[in-house]
Nucleic acid binder design. Sequence first.
DNA 1: TATTGTTATACTCTATAACTATA
DNA 2: TATAGTTATAGAGTATAACAATA
Lengths: 158, 158
Amino acid sequence: MSVERQTEPEKQAAFEQWPDGVSFGVLRDLIGYALRRAQIAIYRDFFASVGADGITPPLFAALVLIAENPDINQSRLGEILGVNRAAAKALVDRLTAPKLVERQASPSDRRANTIRLTPEGQARLGDLIRQVQAHDARVARRLAPEDLSLLRDLLGRF
Amino acid sequence: MSVERQTEPEKQAAFEQWPDGVSFGVLRDLIGYALRRAQIAIYRDFFASVGADGITPPLFAALVLIAENPDINQSRLGEILGVNRAAAKALVDRLTAPKLVERQASPSDRRANTIRLTPEGQARLGDLIRQVQAHDARVARRLAPEDLSLLRDLLGRF
DNA sequence: TATTGTTATACTCTATAACTATA
DNA sequence: TATAGTTATAGAGTATAACAATA
């Protein structure tokens, strides 16, 4: 026999991009805030699409960079991602635990580790890329193709 | 006598938007990732400009919404910001501690609190808005005015 | 001296689950 | 039953500071 639920799990409220009847004041004019709201909306779609595997946006980015830049070390990975060494280590640890990546002693620098995908990591990354691309395409569908490439260009200037 | 430092404080590495010599693979084409990198760059400028007061982007947004929508309650604030009730409470708590906002019993619903700025909160918000606007203007300067309004429009579609 | 990785620690942000009071 | 607020708990993400090993 299963235990009866006392209450239903609370459903996540929908995120309205700029709800009516709310005064946003100065936030309306801040490009940083517009970016933040867009990011919230996109992250929600990401977690609904890919989140089931415990892979988050930062972990996905780290995984792709490790795959694309063989034998990169942690410090450089952190620089590229925009986090410090301690944070980069934490990301690599979270990919090492499920055996998606592995560290190896660097042959050229005995201080450094070299990070690369395991065979399982290779296989999982293929699936993940498909899931993330499907998510991104769904989100991108809200814009015309020419607007999308324009947006990419504008974002790249910050 | 002061204790001698053993090491210099580590400086934050610069964040290069799309560094050369790095392969980004599929990340290059994901609009979600382009947005993420732009956000990282903008957050860094925010913290360099405003962070000294302990006010973060989510706290600033909450403060403005409370100012602009008098007697809003926590749950509604959370909905607008895109977080749940528990997270909204945490935000309000962090604004209540330095006495920028205060809770009052709602006259119309004895379950609810009404949130509003204290006089100190009013005064501080004026300064904060100026700091945040200066930050945002500095960031926005990277785009021509017409590109900026275009960007705002495109971001609003997600 | 500077860099790589590590450890310890702490803080922000956010979520889930369950509880109380009220609607 | 549903909603507002609260509490306890947890986890992700990130930072700072210090240390050892190596360059």
